[in-house]
Design a protein around this nucleic acid. Structure first.
Lengths: 355, 355
DNA sequence: AAAAGCACCTAAATCGATTTAGATATTTTT
DNA sequence: AAAAATATCTAAATCGATTTAGGTGCTTTT
């Protein structure tokens, strides 16, 4: 019942050759090293019979690589990152690698620990959606020789290869769409982790476009934690103060979901009472009533590019423009949640009718 | 620019002691082995200065364990499994372990490869949601000494510790709820991978309860792949044949989402034209219109139990009832999508009005 | 002063696979 | 038949950390 591992040596002894021969045979280098066909066959047969499995720790120790890459995101249960993870997993599998996935919960200390941990495990490289405030530490890792690619979130002039989307443009397109549709009292729901590039750029793009039209924006930061509760309270308060926006931009899918939930509870109608737009498209956005206007990201492209860049680093291949920032474009899917409805006083009064 | 690793030996040489001392100090065994305080401090200082990171491959090779566990599911981008992954990750982190997550796409061959691969990597144990037809192979791994816990999906009398939910009861409760509400023409949407215990038991429970009432069930297997297209076609066909069910049970969240999407496209109203119920609760089910009746699983409990059992195996601790099947209970969340509406001819005719 | 005790540390084996320099036996060349 | 060439394989170092059985020099005991 005990785990009895079969090693190279066991096979070598059993066949009556040296470990070297077994190793060479197992790695397909028999011909190259002039191992006789007879010996080769005997080794392979015995390895199969004994159910030999090469110990990858020993192999990794000797070879200096592990065919494992690390993926660090803020929360693997967020569907955006889950999709990223799945893409990376498939890409890794295509080159015989595995992925160790870790979540940081936007905690810088946790991120630091995880990077250290993955390095100690000798991962070949790391794909990281960082929560750090700046790139200083990461730059150290990178120039230390750690193959590293940043995705989703980036830093200005970090010098670390990064693959992100055009968040500014996403926010801008949303604002332009809302403005063009006739909305006039915009709000943006952002996160307390507002130093994060994605959040920051989305908000900046949104503000920029509205400011072009000379419109002031109501900006609200939702603290990490009970997002749903905070959003609910916010909308309540704004309503009581008679200070409701006529359109809202939620900077990510979590916030959007919280808004939908709150509006449902509070009886706020979308888009009649308030339009809703957000970043990150989810499957259900397209078929619920109302369908939700959202910016979608090219997840597959992000992963393909990031993975490719990482592989180049791992293989130590020089590559043109390494260290560059790659900015992919987004698509704004306009749906019912941001359809403009001519407001009437009677409608406004229906809000919170259930309360 | 090159990765210059700092080893135990480097520190030893630099301080002027043997590797043994450094190792003992680093592992907090200095006192136990009578290392002088002065030496201890000097070693620690030097380790910090040189930014020493113990090589976990070497450590794992020597110690025989890696503080890494494997998690194999069918698709990490499915929100149910993403949530599972997150829970397991946190549990593992609490004991200093990492998780390697892999997806099988319900492919038995891929599952086989992944298990082999994880074993070669010397993971300490595996948590598996298996796609196999029977437990034969898995039993071999298990009795071979591989710490293994099955979750979500199980096998009869496998002898392998398993943590699942009461799928039969879930299906049964749904059917009873529908029947009690007044529905009479039930359908169940199941998957082509119908040998899988979850799917099988859900359908069995559903059928059992309806049969108790003497009602026949329309059962449809949706082939893997283009689920959304297949569901859409199915509903179209059934409608044309004038053979629409008045209530539907989708055996998992993917199917339910496909149904919502199709109904939206086809103009089928829920629950007026057809009620919808499903397994796996998703956040958005509770606030969309109509809200969706769904069975929710105690994900956190599943993970806690599975992880605990795995740890017992890894630590080789005898534990009462190891190898047993643990069946957790589910909760049926009754919502608007299965509210009974007295049918009228005029309403029925509205279906497909847009086509 | 020899023996014993103690504090502090070292040498070396070990985990399992890879790789290289060279050993041995056989065959071919001259 | 001796030298050279070839075919086939082996020994041993290596990756880096852990662990255990001792070793060294000092102090204390008798």
């Amino acid at each position: 019942m005990k785990k009895q591992r079969v090693s190279l040596d066991d096979i070598a002894r059993s066949v009556g050759v040296s470990k070297a021969v077994v190793s060479l045979v197992m790695n397909g280098k028999a011909e190259q090293y002039g191992i006789s066909e007879r010996t080769r066959i005997r080794v392979l047969d015995r390895a199969r019979d004994l159910n030999y499995k090469p110990n990858q720790l020993a192999r990794g120790l000797r070879l200096g690589y592990t065919n494992t890459i690390g993926l660090i995101v803020s929360d693997i249960s967020n569907s955006f990152y889950a999709a990223i993870a799945r893409n990376i997993e498939d890409l890794a599998a295509s080159v015989g690698s595995n992925v160790i996935i870790c979540s940081t919960d936007e905690d810088i200390e946790k991120e630091r620990k995880l990077i250290k941990l993955l390095r100690n495990r000798q991962v070949d490289g790391i794909i990281l959606s960082s929560s750090q405030e700046n790139a200083e530490e990461l730059r150290n890792y990178y120039s230390d020789g750690l193959p590293l690619v940043l995705i989703d979130r980036c830093f200005e002039n970090s010098g670390i290869p990064s693959v992100v989307v055009d968040n500014f443009n996403g926010g801008k397109q949303i604002a332009e769409h809302l403005s063009k549709s006739g909305f006039q009292k915009p709000m943006v729901l952002t996160l307390s982790t507002s130093h994060i590039s994605t959040v920051k750029h989305r908000v900046e793009g949104y503000k920029y476009a509205w400011q072009q039209k000379g419109v002031k924006i109501d900006t609200v930061e939702i603290p990490f934690g009970d997002i749903s509760g905070a959003v609910s309270e916010l909308l309540m308060t704004r309503f009581k103060q008679n200070f409701m926006p006529d359109c809202l931009f939620a900077v990510n899918n979590n916030l959007a979901t919280a808004v939908l939930q709150s509006c449902n509870n509070l009886g706020i109608r979308i888009p009649e009472d308030m339009a809703l737009t957000c970043f990150d498209d989810l499957p259900y956005f397209s078929f619920i009533k109302p369908s939700v206007t959202a910016v979608s990201q090219p997840i597959s492209d992000i992963c393909t590019q990031a993975f490719e860049i990482l592989m180049h680093q791992i293989k130590q291949e020089e590559i043109e423009g390494l260290g560059k920032l790659s900015v992919l474009s987004i698509v704004l899917n306009i749906r019912d949640s941001s359809r403009f409805v001519i407001p009437s006083d009677s409608e406004e009064s229906k809000i919170l009718k259930d309360k």
